[in-house]
Amino acid sequence: MTTPVPRVMVPGSVSRHEVFPIKAIIQHEMETGLRTDSTGQVIPRKIINGFVCRYGSVEVFRADLHEAVAANPFLEFYLRATESGRLEFIWQEDGGAIYSLSHEIVVT
């Protein structure tokens, strides 16, 4: 079993009210749920089914993901800078596993 690698690309600092881009990607071992193992049993589906971004304590972006998106889903979205604080990124995988990453953003 391997630990998925989440990554985000966020500017280190932005000016107040600026709209800035965030890119997020995660590499994990995807299972489509359509394959069978050597004994003929269906291998359970394991995809990233959801993604959430929090800015401080506020949820600012959410995506529900489905089959046929990509093995390693890539997301790009925009936020408006309000104040310095913590951005938190959370990926949800089938089976209940959660992977997260956080990033301090400085608003000038």
Partner: peptide
């Protein structure tokens, strides 16, 4: 890669980098 080399190879597409 997942089967032979778990966690060793990471691929980043243009849209990310």
């Amino acid at each position: 890669w997942g089967r032979h080399y778990p966690g060793m190879i990471e691929w980043l597409p243009r849209q990310f980098t």
